[in-house]
Design a protein around this nucleic acid. Structure first.
Length: 415
RNA sequence: GCGGUCGUAGCUCAGCUGGUAGAGCGCCAGGUUGUGGUCUUGGAUGUCGCGGGUUCGAGCCCCGUCGAUCGCCCCA
């Protein structure tokens, strides 16, 4: 019996061909744009002590309570595959003693994240995120700038048309406590009419009811108070400044008082770039301000702001992944011509041209292979031509062919 | 964790009231032993996701399971 076929683990997938090129294009574009904004790239470990996430994301958040890939390593320590990137970056800031010098510090990261969830369109158990953080900046301009960088990336990817920035403020602790109390009062009054899910939310985190998708809930939410009247003067002023800077930086915004971020560490600015083109997973880039997180990691108070974006989701919005490069095919007609062909092959590559040679096959086979690689041109080295210091240059799109001096091959192909 | 839909050739799919599999594309070979893509002729495709059950007989019916997909929860 043959071995049973192996399947990828549920919620994981291979990135091959067009999928990989789309993914690579998203990450590469983010890397390039964020460099323009002064972000440096960090690579933190893919797994951390479980405490790094449990403490920062909030013990009761779904991510911590039911979605983490946690395991005990051989030394008996509890380890978790990172479900998101910000906690690791903050931990790294503290671990590396970077909390004093050169703040604010702008960071970019990209890599795989892991959450044990039911897979769905645009949602995987191993997925990839890019993220930008501005660490150690309490000013509203930091919020606006990092959001502007995200918008810039979406524009550069050509997908900003169908995406809107929804933004809200969660206020400071004082505003939030007052608002939470008011919400609790409002929803408790309508408790019986709430959906079962929202009755649970009422006990755990009443703010979550605000973004419920349940029809009945929406009617109750519509009459719920917004946070605005509960904002302290400082919190209101902060949010106004963020909005003003975003306007100045050319980022269109839509205020949405129902936005609530899922992770506990957010305060003040909360935002999501959303689209209606991805079904239920409309959030494509999201983040906010997290002034208390670095302190949670054992560092000094380090007000910070940032966002993360799902690479798979951004990639799905791309009109088309960039095409693979089109090589030049070098084709020796007989074995005697192979040495000359290999020399030419390396000359082309040294000149920066993508060039390929088949490992075997006659002229017809090699031409077929060149076609399959969507080669743009073939350089055919025949015995007679080579003896005269010449090669055949065939344009595979036009189908035209010309005899040219071997020495001109590289320059004729536009090096 | 919960609910809906779906798993047939490498890909996209067809397969009648159950009678032991088909198309297109792709692939391979010839027409063209120094020329691809177009054209033409021929050829090979398969544990019908997996396991069990019903039946004389199951791709088709039943149960389970794995996977995909869409939605809920939640989230990027």
């Amino acid at each position: 019996m043959a071995n049973p076929p192996l399947q990828p683990v549920r919620g994981t997938r291979d990135l091959i061909g067009e999928d990989f090129r789309g993914h690579h294009h998203v990450v590469g574009t983010a890397r390039r744009i964020l460099a323009l904004y002064g972000h440096e790239e960090w690579a933190t470990p893919i797994f951390e002590s479980t405490a790094v996430f449990a403490r920062s994301l909030g013990e009761t958040s779904d991510v911590v309570s039911k979605e983490m890939y946690s395991f005990e390593d051989r030394g008996g320590d509890s380890i978790t595959l990172r479900p998101e990137g910000t906690a690791g970056v903050c931990r790294a800031l503290v671990s590396n003693g970077l909390t004093q010098a050169n703040l604010p510090r702008k960071v970019f990261y990209a890599g795989p994240m892991f959450r044990y969830e039911r897979p769905q369109k645009g949602r995987y158990r191993q997925f990839h995120q890019i993220g930008a953080e501005v660490l150690g900046a309490a000013e509203p301009l930091a919020d606006a700038e990092v959001i502007a960088a995200g918008w810039h990336i979406l524009q550069e990817l050509g997908i900003s048309e169908g995406v809107v920035l929804e933004i809200n403020t969660l206020g400071d602790a004082e505003s939030r406590d007052a608002y939470r109390a008011a919400l609790l009062e409002h929803f408790t009054a309508h408790q019986a009419a709430l959906s079962p899910d929202s009755q649970v939310r009422l006990a755990k985190n009443p703010m979550r009811i605000l973004d419920s998708k349940d029809e009945g809930d929406r009617a109750i939410v519509a009459t719920a108070p917004t946070i605005q009247p509960f904002l302290t003067a400082a919190a209101a002023g902060f949010f106004d400044a963020v909005l003003r800077h975003l306007d100045t930086l050319g980022v269109p915004t839509r205020q949405n008082p129902r936005i609530v971020r899922g992770l506990d560490y957010y305060s003040h600015t909360a935002f999501e770039f959303v689209t209606d083109r991805l079904g239920a997973q409309g959030t494509v880039m999201a983040g906010g301000r997290y002034d208390g997180l670095v302190a949670e990691m054992g560092g000094p108070a380090t007000p910070s702001v940032g966002w993360a974006a799902g690479v798979e989701r951004l990639s799905m919005l791309l009109a088309a992944a960039p095409a693979a490069p089109r090589p030049v095919a070098v084709i020796p007609v007989g074995e005697a011509q192979e040495a000359a062909a290999l020399g030419l092959l390396q000359d082309l590559r040294r000149a920066g041209l993508v060039a390929e040679i088949a490992y075997k096959g006659n002229l017809k086979r090699r031409m077929e292979r060149a076609n399959r690689l969507s080669a743009r041109a073939a350089l055919i080295l025949g015995e007679d031509e080579l003896a005269a210091g010449q090669v055949q240059l065939r344009d595979l799109d036009a189908g035209s062919q010309a005899t040219i001096p071997l020495a001109e091959a590289v320059s004729r192909l536009g090096a």
